[in-house]
Write a protein that binds this DNA or RNA. Structure first.
Lengths: 356, 356
DNA sequence: ATGAAAGCGCTAACAA
DNA sequence: TTGTTAGCGCTTTCAT
């Protein structure tokens, strides 16, 4: 006879290898539970999962045996059999960005409440990490929440073709079959424009973001459109591109003010940038808000803590996280069809645009 | 005959159910690849994994077939067979805390480079979430990085008994068989004490943390020991307990100063707390550093951005993350024996303890 | 209400 | 160097 005699994995090998140092016994399997409870394996399985009706006495015996033996279901086996992993993939650019960290926290909690694990990938804005992550997740998760910094249909379409439920969040990804949960970035940009004009801005600087970021494109577009609607001429609108980070904001505003010293109002794509911009402006001898109005986007908690406190467009991150998980789980468990939800943003007026 | 005719999972069912809406075909299996390449299934497997020697021609054929068919290995099946999931569990209290967010980012990158996924659990300091997470991870990951806010041997010992490689990080967990990567919290507390005395502090406030946090206990112990060594009497040392958050710092310092208005130097267990304390002190009419010296712990990026910039004890988060992953992977792949590493902390002197 | 057994896709032992 | 096949632990069909 052929067949394996290996006892794979990290528990003690009985073979000649015996390399695994860890003490301990092999995990308790369903078979062990069934034998201990004097029922069949299928009865044990059904007693634990509730997949079909089982006698009260059997349930009792099985549950006690399971507890007594410390049984933990082997997820890999269940996953292989059912095709479901009870895991959600979460692909996100940067967990150290407070806005995204909040989303991760909320998403993990909601997923956990629904019985799903979360497999996290932090792409650090690298397109190849995003692509590679998707390829690897396809066989190991039931659905994907994708914060894409590099919307690449060639990377996503294969998963969609396989029927993988996916919801794009935050960064827009327009693809048939892909759900979406976004903020109204264009509307937010427009609100920023109107507010900065009302606050007394005359020459405007836009701290945009990398070209592949749809949020950056939309916020920039909304901002310039809003300014134009208020009668601001294009030669009084200056745009500069910078990473979505504190340092990006510092460096961006340095370039912006060097090229256009007459800028007196700045809209940044993220609070991280806006805060960096505020600090750099201070170091350059500009007083916010008197010499320079600054408005951000996100409303991270630090925005109300710095001095001057930062005017910003608040995204409903809790609502978005909740809707995204709900939408994805609906696709996973009920096979619903993908939807797109757009959340309004709210202007939070603070000191950085309040001239004395 | 028995046997299943189900086509499980999220790809199209052929059965009468037909509830899954998603279009697409069933995933390509290794068998498909082998047939397409005209080799046996084991040759295909070995060509892809390199587990044993395969002829160059076969490798060529298999790789081309795999690429052509878009083959992705079924991780559940591989995991069931080998007992390895290529996944690391990461149990952490709060990803919105910048210090922990940085650790998550570094850990995910290092794990990814080694070919491991990361299953994230954000416990939000809830003991039951931590316990539940460990129970669930035991069958689905190859190793666990545990930032425990509730070191409970009863929850961890079962995993250790099963031989699960585990490394405690940041928060100490003294248990035979458990690896550890910590900062020298006691030494850090002592450094803070010496620095605050040198900076002119006379009555000292300690913003401690919840009782189950070992970092809080160690930093507090080091701080008071350091003060005693400098001849400070116990009645000039006042300790208050507060959560590891900005709001915790605000609220803690409010209580502290209400009870002991003569406090003129504060050491907080985390920068989050210290920054909250600084803001609250400001709101209470105290000037930092002139009326009140403040020293934090962590050196999150915001500490150098606020005004006044925050003196703090820098933890080597990159080094710790790297060492923790390395240690865990060593346990997982080489079966090494668990070690404990303690990283020194460094005093970063900034404006919050520099009197003019 | 329960049991027997097939088989998910893969790896690895065994055979050639 | 390659092929054949057992079996990882579980769910689920089929039979009772």
């Amino acid at each position: 006879m052929g067949g394996s005699s290996a006892t794979p994995g990290w528990w003690p090998e009985k073979g000649p290898g015996m390399k695994v140092v860890a003490p301990g016994r092999a995990p308790v399997t369903l078979k062990d539970v069934a034998e201990h409870a004097n029922v069949s394996i299928s009865t044990a399985s059904n007693a634990l999962t509730g997949a079909r009706k089982v006698g009260a006495a059997s349930i009792e015996k099985v549950l006690r045996s399971a507890a007594e033996l410390g049984y933990q279901r082997n997820e890999a086996a269940r996953s292989l059999r059912t095709g479901l992993s009870n895991t959600l993939g979460l692909v996100i650019p940067d967990v150290t960005n407070p806005f995204w960290a909040g989303m991760v926290s909320a998403i993990e909690r909601l997923a956990g409440e629904a019985g799903f694990q979360v497999s996290l990938v932090n792409t650090e804005f690298a397109p190849q990490r995003e692509t590679a992550a998707l390829a690897r997740l396809v066989t190991s998760v039931d659905g994907v929440l994708l914060f894409s910094t590099n919307p690449d249909a060639a990377a996503v379409q294969p998963l969609l073709d396989l029927g993988m439920p996916m919801v794009a969040v935050d960064e827009r990804f327009d693809l048939e079959g892909l759900g979406g949960v976004y903020s109204d970035n264009t509307g937010g940009g427009r609100l920023a424009a109107e507010h900065l004009v009302d606050a007394g801005g005359t020459v405007f600087g836009m701290l945009g973001g990398p070209g592949t970021l749809t949020t950056a494109a939309e916020r920039t577009a909304g901002f310039t459109a809003g300014l134009r609607e208020r009668g601001i001429d294009v030669d009084r609108i200056h745009t500069v591109v910078a990473p979505y980070s504190f340092e990006g904001g510092r460096e961006g505003v340095r370039r912006l003010l060097a090229a256009h010293p007459d800028v007196d109002a700045i809209f940044a794509c993220t609070d991280n940038q806006a805060i960096g911009a505020t600090f750099e402006a201070h170091d350059l001898g500009r007083v916010v808000p008197d010499d320079l109005l600054v408005c951000g986007f996100d409303d991270i908690s630090w925005s109300s803590r710095i001095s001057p406190s930062l005017t910003t467009l608040r995204q409903d991150s809790a609502g978005m996280a909740s809707r995204a998980v709900e939408m994805l789980l609906d696709l996973v468990t009920a096979g619903g069809s993908p939807e797109v939800a757009v959340f309004p943003v709210e202007l939070i007026e603070r000191d950085s645009t309040r001239r004395r």
